[in-house]
Design a protein around this nucleic acid. Structure first.
Lengths: 231, 231
DNA sequence: AAATAAGATTGATAAATGTCAAGTAAGTTA
DNA sequence: TAACTTACTTGACATTTATCAATCTTATTT
């Protein structure tokens, strides 16, 4: 009996990336033959910056944080990955190394697909290749936003952005319980954890949010948006 | 006689992007039929953020600055474009809008190619599509570097990065004369122009660089690199 | 050449942010 | 339960950075 049992075939996988809907049955089978599923415990490293990029990954269950290991042991947290999101860093088609690290912030199941297989279907299927470029460019747009948010806004604006991001895109609820630390929140907003804590407290006393430990609730969304925009 | 005369055909163009070497003669001809050359005067806008992305552009002569128009009228300068560099922003294959503005900092000649034509060859030519993804990912790696440089380094480190960038990648010389303003340098380093001027002066008095007006010279490159790394 | 305008520089000051140290809370191990 | 570890929080303080105003330089116009 094999150590890893693939629960499903790509063909009828409910956790499939949108991207893969553009493949033919044959291509889907091909991908299926070049993938395997891995389970990670919370805290474990999924990708390590600098390591070889031999596979791309799709998170099927659980959450993970994607971060760049920068200077002076500081991390910049790029995003929180959710189920059905794909990991295919910019090292692809270049030096095939990881330009960020990925760490499970809950137990995680992920499908690993060999990059060679992805390259093969990019070559074969022109619709897929267009959609792949689209996906990469969408990510590029996000980096632009992050660049502006982090370099042109002051701390309250940056924390407002993080709270909006967590509420709207990660936990999809006004009320949410984070599975990331205060340090992670600080790394999302590119500031010290003490500063992050202080700004969060300010939002708390001004009744913009409610926050007890890891439980957050957005009370005044328009106010948050305003802070985000004014910087 | 037409208003714009195409000086050359893509086929034997000496200013051709590396990317286009992967096209067949037929595809090159196809691109040639869907391109036109435009001359810009210094200071003129080549692409405007928010505008429709109908063409990609290749700079054949002159320099241009690429910048995001951010919050509170602040700009973030992404890069200085040189001859033979290509402009194909992340709006491509998405909403087909420009996510940055591009402005000529000298007289500029540029080839404009219809995006539809590019999409067509991406679809037709799998080598080209791989190379195109490679190109987009290279840009992504640059954004990562920029994100780290701008969010995790203090002003001396950021200005050091800018000086290294200008010397090594833009003007390709230890000695160079910039055709950008102090404000532009500040926008490259995400700080106020006064701060940029002060840091440049510090480098000057500590004999790391020589600087008279727009004439720069790197005197102690290792020192610059050290400042860049320590942040 | 004088007048004007735009950009560059400097100094003084205020605001923003990080660091350090101490203390608290909460969870984990013995 | 107690000891211990880890993360979180707070306050005091130092450092970094931006802002504002004045001056200087350089280029452009008249």
């Amino acid at each position: 009996m094999p150590l890893f049992v693939n629960a499903v075939f790509c063909q009828n996988c409910s956790k499939k990336q949108n991207l893969f809907q553009f493949l033919t049955d044959e291509e889907t089978n091909y991908i299926n033959e070049h993938r395997h599923e891995v389970k990670f415990n919370r805290g474990e490293t999924i990708f390590k910056q600098g390591g070889a990029l031999t596979h791309i990954a799709c998170v099927t269950t659980g959450f993970a944080k994607v971060y760049i290991e920068g200077v002076n042991k500081k991390n910049l947290l790029l995003k929180i990955l959710r189920p059905t999101e794909m990991l295919a860093g910019p090292g692809m088609f270049n030096d095939f190394r990881h330009y960020y690290s990925v760490n499970a912030i809950s137990d995680v199941t992920a499908c690993f697909i060999e990059v060679e297989a992805i390259m093969e279907v990019v070559k074969q299927n022109s619709v897929f290749s267009i959609e792949f470029i689209k996906w990469v460019n969408q990510r590029g747009i996000r980096y632009f936003e992050k660049l502006i948010n982090l370099t042109q806004k002051q701390m309250p604006g940056r924390i407002a952005d993080v709270l909006i991001y967590l509420s709207k895109e990660v936990y999809e609820n006004d009320k949410f319980t984070v599975n990331i630390s205060r340090q992670d929140i600080a790394d999302l907003a590119a500031m010290s954890k003490e500063s992050a804590i202080r700004v969060i407290k300010e939002f708390k006393v001004s009744k913009v949010i409610k926050c007890e430990g890891n439980d957050f609730e957005i009370l005044d969304f328009p106010a948050l948006q305003k802070v985000s925009q004014t910087g």
